[in-house]
Every structure is written in C-alpha cells, then in structure tokens.
Amino acid sequence: MIQLKGLSKAFQTKTQTVTAVDNVSISIDEGEIFGIIGYSGAGKSTLVRLLNKLETATSGEVTIEGESITSLKGQSLRSARQEIGMVFQHFNLLWSRTVAENIAFPLEIAKQSKQERSKRVQELVNLVGLEGREDSYPSQLSGGQKQRVGIARALANNPKVLLCDEATSALDPKTTDSILALLTDINKKLGLTIVLITHEMHVIRKICHRVAVMESGRVVEEGPVLQVFRNPREHMTKEFVRQITEPEEDASEIVFNEEETGVVVQLKFLENKAEQPFISKVIRQFDVDVNIIQGKISQTQRGSYGSLFIRIKGSSEEIDKALAYLREEEIEAEVMERA
C-alpha cells in the first residue's frame, strides 16, 4: 500500500551535507502495523515526514495507494495529507481549543459543516475513550489523555494511513501500554495501516507486525517482528532485541557453579512453543533433572517467544538424548560453555 523507492533526504548545512535518509526502499502492506526503530539521529523522524511530504525528498519516490506523494504540490498535496493522519511525540495540540475543538480542527480544514463536525467529534471522543472531557482544555489533561486527543484528531478525516512519530516516547510505561492498546484496537477495528517510529523495542514487540531497523539513514534490517527478534542479523538489531528479550543478566554473567554437575543450556522458543510443557516432558521421558536458572518470555502480535536458561543433570547420554528431543521440537538448545 505504501511504497518507498530509493528514498533519500540530504540536509545542507554551512560546512557539510548530512544525509538523514539514505536510499531507503520499503513496502508496507495495507492494514499492517509497521514499525521503524532506531536511535535518535538515525533518520527515522525525517523518514516518516517524507511520507506526507513535511520534508521534501532529495531523490526517490513515495507512493501511497498508487498516488505519488513526492510529486504532489499545493491543493492536491493538502488533500492527500488529509488522508494521512499523524500523531506526535509532544502531542502538538492547540492549547487555545478544547478537546472537542481540537478534534474538530482537521474537519474545519476539510471544510465540513458544523453539524457533520459535531457528530464526527462525538464518535471520535467515544472511540478514544475521552467521554466527559470534551470541554476540557489540553492543559487540564494528563499526557495519556492528550495523546488520545492527538489520535482522535489524526483519525478525524478517516485517513488511510496513520503515522506515529514517537507517539509514546513522552509517556510513562503504563500510559504507553494503554496508548499501544488503543492503536492496536484502531488497527483491528478500522483496518488502518499504521507506520510507527520509536526507539523502544518494547513498542515494536507489543504492536508491530513488521519492523525495519534504521541506522545512520539506512534500513539495515527488515522483516516480520518475530523473525527479527528470533534471528537478529545486524549488530544494531541485536542490541535492540537484547533490550527486552534476554534476561536481565547476559548469558556470560550466569554463575557457573563448579560444584554443580551437568550442563547449562540456553533454550530459545519461537511462536507458540513457549506455551507448551517441554520441561516436564523432558523430565518424564529422560533420566535427567532440570533446574531452571532464569528466563523470559515475551508476547508479540504474532505469537510469543523467549529464552530460558536451564541446568540439565544426568548421565551425558541422557543429556544428549534430551537435547536431541528439544531440537526435534524446533527449540533451539545451545549448550553454554563453562566460563
């Protein structure tokens, strides 16, 4: 639905040219939540602004539903923008307007009649769960409520695409989760395509279907969230994935107690394997003892996955058999070296 082809954006400063976005090509499907992750300065904010031409591309093309955004100008660009909602990190609400008036603002821009506006505003207020706050001013709202207004406003003109520019980065973890739940809900209810940029892997894991990892202007890795989490190829991706998947301590920090026998094994689960009773099966079928050291399981939009450190004790034959069984069940089992 959204195609980026060889998209680049360079900024000219007095002394040098800074390439913020460097030859990016991505294809985003209709109805999916596509995440773009990167550290600040990676060019993701610029990239998302190229999608509605808030920034003009130096080269390359953006098409949304076959319409080339990069070549639009004037009135046709403004009409196209009305079909692309955008949510901001700092909400960017008009403080001089009430909640209802803020949500009505894009409808005024689209020159809708007063009656249509008030009807639509009420629908949106209900959709984002702000009933009773219609006449409050933004300064009277909490961060999460402000972002709900921002989302309602972005959805007012029934856009095809919703762009989220660090929409949860200014919010506390609990509020972040409620906003993410709202976005997932909207995605399911309205079938809306969402492009979301963030520096928090947590956000990607929670709601995205696919993810692109950006580093200094380029997309270094791209794919379904579960696959990227399972098999991060690039160093940058591994760093992000480690933020939430690996247990707090790194594998290397696990205490290898010399007096203990057996081997330490790291198990990596994928898809729904994490929800099946493998450990008890291993204990029942083989003559081994299993001791759980530590582990973590994460939920994503398309299933859960995780990693678990266990110590298997028993004869080396039985241990090998147990490992073979796990591998047969498509669980990655890696024997950790003694430090």
């Binding site: 509605n52 808030l54 660009l77 403004r78 009409s79 196209a80 923008r81 009305q82 692309i84 955008m86 901001f88 700092h90 960017n92 609400l93 008009l94 603002f105 894009p106 005024e108 821009i109 689209a110 406003r153 003109n157 762009l163």
Partner: peptide
C-alpha cells in the same frame, strides 16, 4: 507559538491562510 502545532496543522492539510 509552538512550531510543532504548526507542523501538525500542515500535516492535516491546512492552507497557509488557515
């Protein structure tokens, strides 16, 4: 006036006069 608010209005398709 917050530049972000102006950017948000542009993103909504507001004209300069609006």
């Amino acid at each position: 006036v917050d530049k972000g608010v102006i950017e948000a209005s542009q993103a909504m398709g507001a004209s300069q006069w609006q």
